[in-house]
Write a protein that binds this DNA or RNA. Structure first.
Lengths: 207, 207
DNA sequence: GTCTATATAAAGATAGAC
DNA sequence: GTCTATCTTTATATAGAC
């Protein structure tokens, strides 16, 4: 007979946090299949069997991680709303997405890894929650266009372009660094990117 | 004593092609670590030991694949040149890159996988050949800007944005499909994307 | 060149002592 | 809760017959 699920103690919660933090490091760098429980255990400062005392399997760690990730990841799009000034709203969304790429590059890469492999674990979420959210925001953008507040264009591809350009700085970080060279490292790169993306998107949207 | 490397017969070349084609399928879908020689052998229609008769190791298959990939991948940027009309030149580059995403999505994903994992195998190429190529093209773009032919902006981030937006349609294909739904499948999506990207980039670059 | 059989190593997961 | 030892599965690669 199975024992009923017990609420976790505070200490158990904290240990799980340590493991998830370590797993984010490892999984985002090597992908799910490319990572080993040993690596995660090492990064978390504990033995493999000890780690498996807190999570039943590698799969369960990954699932827990993805669940949280998606919440964080969709937050900026949720914030995007029908404000007074469309340009301010879109500019803010771009800035928040770029800040996410800067502050949460591991999350960005973990997400990219999952999508790249065909999104086996989150397909239903993409077709459900994500699609509905994007549909809603696309309707807002279209309303702005009909009202003549911004130039007419395809709202879906506009959103894709914002995702692509901002996440690029996290997902393709090593390439960006290699091309820009050591001169333009750190914070400066993000300021340059922010300026450029504002010019690109806002320039083309002004009616 | 080692036997000297012999030139490959035509049949050997053909078998290697079959293997590389299968490997591209498998590696681009699951990443290098996520793929097994068994899968590649199955896809190539031969047994594992037979496959390993043509390639010494999984690593060697991957290396051969990456080498070719990079040649193909940089071709559009090589073509980008100092023509009469900057707008035509940039528009052509965007179109070629988007066509690559449409016609060679596996290559795009294989490349994305490699970069995402920190580009361990091609770092020196990124810092060498790629950087020099981009530097050269950035100088051309800057010349156009100084001549007042296009609006002033950061040429490096412009190139990154073109890479990001076009490759997005290959790398994040499942997400794009999920969000757009089944209505907008196949060729139509790429036409929409082409129209949008032209408006985005050309609109912002017109002086 | 291709096969069956197998050596070898890595990785996920568990048993059971403490 | 944490450890050492170990089981099991999977995967890379090789040996050797044909």
């Amino acid at each position: 007979m199975e024992t009923a699920a017990r609420p976790l103690t505070r200490i158990q919660q904290e240990k799980r946090e340590v493991i998830l933090e370590a797993a984010l490091d490892v999984f985002s760098a090597s992908g799910f299949r490319g990572s080993t429980i040993d690596q995660v255990a090492d990064a978390a400062g504990m033995s493999k069997p000890n780690l498996l005392y807190y999570f039943r399997s590698k799969e369960e760690i990954h699932a827990t991680l993805m669940e949280r990730l998606l919440h964080t990841w969709l937050a900026p799009l949720h914030e995007f709303d029908d404000g007074d000034d469309p340009i301010t709203e879109i500019r803010g969304y771009i800035r928040r997405k770029l800040e996410m790429a800067r502050d949460f590059p591991r999350e960005s890469r973990l997400f990219a890894n999952e999508i790249l492999q065909g999104a086996p674990r989150i397909m239903s979420l993409l077709e459900g929650e994500l699609k509905q959210l994007v549909d809603k925001k696309a309707r807002i953008i279209r309303k702005w266009m009909r009202a003549g507040k911004i130039a007419r264009t395809d709202p879906y591809h506009l959103i894709f372009a914002i995702w692509a350009t901002t996440q690029h700085y996290a997902d393709f970080d090593v390439q960006v660094r290699a091309v820009l060279g050591p001169d333009r490292d750190g914070e400066g790169r993000f300021e340059d990117a922010a300026r450029f993306l504002e010019q690109l998107f806002i320039g083309c949207l002004k009616a």
